[in-house]
Design a protein around this nucleic acid. Structure first.
Length: 595
RNA sequence: CGGGGCGUGGCGCAGCUUGGUAGCGCGGGUGCUUUGGGAGCACUAGGUCGCAGGUUCGAAUCCUGUCGCCCCGACCA
């Protein structure tokens, strides 16, 4: 490509709208342009990156026998009603853009494609002899995110690779899942990225085992916990661990503790010289189910711990036949006062009476009481006395209410991973760029996708699904690879491998030499950008650094002696090379970088 | 959804408190000089001041409404 016919459109200053460095560099480098919140145009440079990532994915997936196809974006509501996800994806979380056609039929823009692909599979697959089979696509996805942010990190329209595999047994699914995991590791390393694989919650996609692939970065939206040795790694949504030891309470007292206005764990500890591990705090939630019923939930947890809402959601969801579509904290506001009578906010104990739920409330009339392990293990603890301005010492043994004992806490840095273990957890931020799931028979069951097994009996097809956020991966790569001057693309996914810069295009000697080398590189299938603009060399260098092309060949003063320079973007090291050796030298240096 | 901030040429911003008919830097165009890290001088083009009402002789500025964008928050008991 020639810079004169391939407008770079770089910006001199950082756009005000971007906060994190990768987003700033994408805008500044002219890779993307914002059209609306969470909606971006991919400019030619960006598209080249996307295409490189796509072809790395293609190569690896085809090598394990996956078949590429392309599915529609516009899905009929009826299809999603069959899988039972229409309600929760539109009315519930509202993540699915939806609309009516001129016939007044409902449609949605696809946030994911299980429904469509499973329907296809149900029509095509009839026998175990056709299995296993895996389809995938690289497609635009639409999700009306609660808060789109950070450019391509969390956008409402984005490009994703999504794959779906079909199997005749759970065993076969597991084997393929592992094959896919290996392929994913290769894909990310072939993109020049460092990733961590972590155990994950399956979320609304459903299924049993699932694993996320994370690029570690400060700006990541996920918390991941892992051991130094790598023996354990999990998303905080999923991580299980042993909390640090509490400081036991020695003396039992029946007396109420006067704690005026001390509504938080922090205040109670500070004013009364109590350790936060000696407190059980109570947090109230309201669950809403798909049949509109509303369940008040009371969660008890040790004062120094925090509630993991994902674990809590899953616990409540699996406890009931109907499905939970929303879980929110009950705060003191008009809504809660309408349903609760004289609730002593800030001083609630685990044993607060069911009778505080008003009789005319449309909530269920008794609390679902849950105790996290961290609190359940305490013999005695300080907790709310259910009376404004008072706490007391209490124990679960002395309470008459029924509690469900469960793990609903967030793991923390410093936790042990097993009771007798010596390894503790480290916490870091991560950007999720890939996720693989063993779906099992959830979708095949709902969408009636069956096959005849060896015994001639009909059975639901076993399924797996596998995603990679292509556009997110590109931005995560920048988050991981940049410096003060701009992007430092890994060569594997860089828009160009080398930037050819004649410092003065008006010098016919330079111009001719540049043209010759340009042709030579192109003829050897090297992605080269020739900066043939008639501008000062400084601008070309700045642009080159900004858009992050891994190598630069400068044709300047020494061109009179047929000498050029080969410079690495990352190290800035420059070597002088004779014109006749430049191809060979470049191939040698770039090969080092590819490996 | 709650809280905070911001909407003024392509980009970054000033002007608003105290109304008087829009300015700076970068970028664009032309010319001359310059030419290995975002050059200098001169000239020049380019703006519904987010939108809609209102107050006023007069509104970017004051009032009301509305739309959009960005940031923080789903642990407050």
């Amino acid at each position: 490509m020639r810079a004169t016919s391939y407008p770079l459109a770089t910006l001199r200053e950082n756009p005000a709208e971007a906060e994190i460095v990768s987003h700033q560099l994408l805008l500044k480098g002219g890779f993307i342009r914002r059209v609306s919140s969470g909606i971006y145009s991919y400019m030619p440079l960006m598209l080249r990156v996307i295409e490189k990532i796509s072809s790395i994915i293609d190569k690896e997936l085809k090598s394990i026998g996956c078949n590429k196809l392309l599915l529609p974006l516009l899905h009929p509501a009826e299809l999603w009603e069959r899988s039972g996800r229409w309600e929760s994806y539109t009315a519930g979380e509202g993540i699915m853009f939806n609309l009516l056609d001129r016939q007044n039929r409902g449609f949605g823009l696809a946030p994911t494609h299980e429904e469509v692909i499973t329907t296809i599979a149900s029509e095509i697959i009839t026998s175990y002899k056709q299995l296993p089979i895996c389809y995938y696509q690289i497609q635009t996805k639409f999700r009306d995110e609660i808060r789109p942010r950070f450019g391509l990190m969390r956008s409402r329209e984005f490009i994703m690779k999504d794959g779906y595999s079909f199997h005749s047994s759970e065993e076969d699914l597991k084997q393929f899942y592992e094959k896919m995991e290996t392929a994913y590791i290769k894909i990310f390393s072939n993109c020049g990225l460092e990733t961590v694989g972590v155990d994950a919650d399956s979320g609304s996609i459903g299924g049993s085992a699932s694993k996320e692939f994370m690029v570690t970065a400060e700006s990541g939206e996920d918390s991941i916990l892992f051991t130094e040795s790598g023996s354990y790694a999990a998303n905080i949504e999923k991580a299980n661990s042993i909390p640090t030891k509490e400081i036991p309470i020695k003396v039992q007292s029946q007396d109420l503790l006067f704690t005026p206005n001390q509504k938080s764990v922090y205040e109670v500890c500070k004013q009364n010289k109590i350790d936060s591990t000696q407190i059980v705090k109570v947090i109230l939630f309201l669950g809403v189910f798909d049949d509109d019923s509303q369940l008040p939930i009371l969660v008890c947890i040790r004062g120094d711990q925090t509630v993991n809402e994902v674990k809590l959601f899953n616990l409540v969801d699996t406890k009931y036949e109907k499905s939970l579509i929303n879980l929110s904290i009950i705060e003191r506001n008009i809504e809660s006062e309408k349903n609760l009578d004289n609730l002593p906010f800030g001083f609630i104990g685990p044993d607060i009476n069911d009778s505080i739920i008003k009789s005319d409330s449309n909530w269920q009339k008794s609390w679902l009481r849950i105790v996290d392990h961290s609190a359940n293990n305490l013999n005695l603890f300080f907790t709310g006395a259910n009376k404004i301005d008072y706490h007391k010492i209490n124990s679960f043994n002395s309470m008459s209410q029924k509690f469900i004992n469960a793990d609903v806490r967030n793991s923390k840095q410093g936790d042990y991973i097993t009771i007798k273990g010596t390894e503790t957890l480290i916490e870091k931020r991560g950007i999720e760029i890939g996720h693989i799931f063993q779906l099992g028979q959830k979708y095949s069951h709902k969408l009636n996708a069956k096959f005849s097994n060896k015994e001639g009996k009909l059975e639901n097809i076993w399924m797996g699904c596998y995603g990679i956020g292509v556009t997110r991966l590109a931005q995560a790569a920048i988050e991981q690879n940049h410096d003060d001057d701009g992007i430092c693309w890994p060569i594997h996914i860089a828009p160009f491998e080398v930037n050819l810069i004649p410092t003065n295009i008006k010098d016919s000697n330079q111009k001719n030499l540049a043209e010759e080398i340009y042709l030579e590189l192109k003829n050897n299938d090297i992605d080269v950008l020739l900066d043939d603009r008639d501008i000062r060399a400084g601008i070309k260098f700045k642009d080159s650094d900004l858009i992050g092309i891994p190598f630069r060949i400068v044709i300047g003063r020494d061109s009179i002696n047929n000498e050029v320079e080969l410079i690495s973007r990352v190290t800035k090291k420059s070597i002088k090379v004779h014109r006749r050796n430049i191809l060979e030298k470049f191939l040698y240096e770039s090969k080092l970088m590819y490996n």
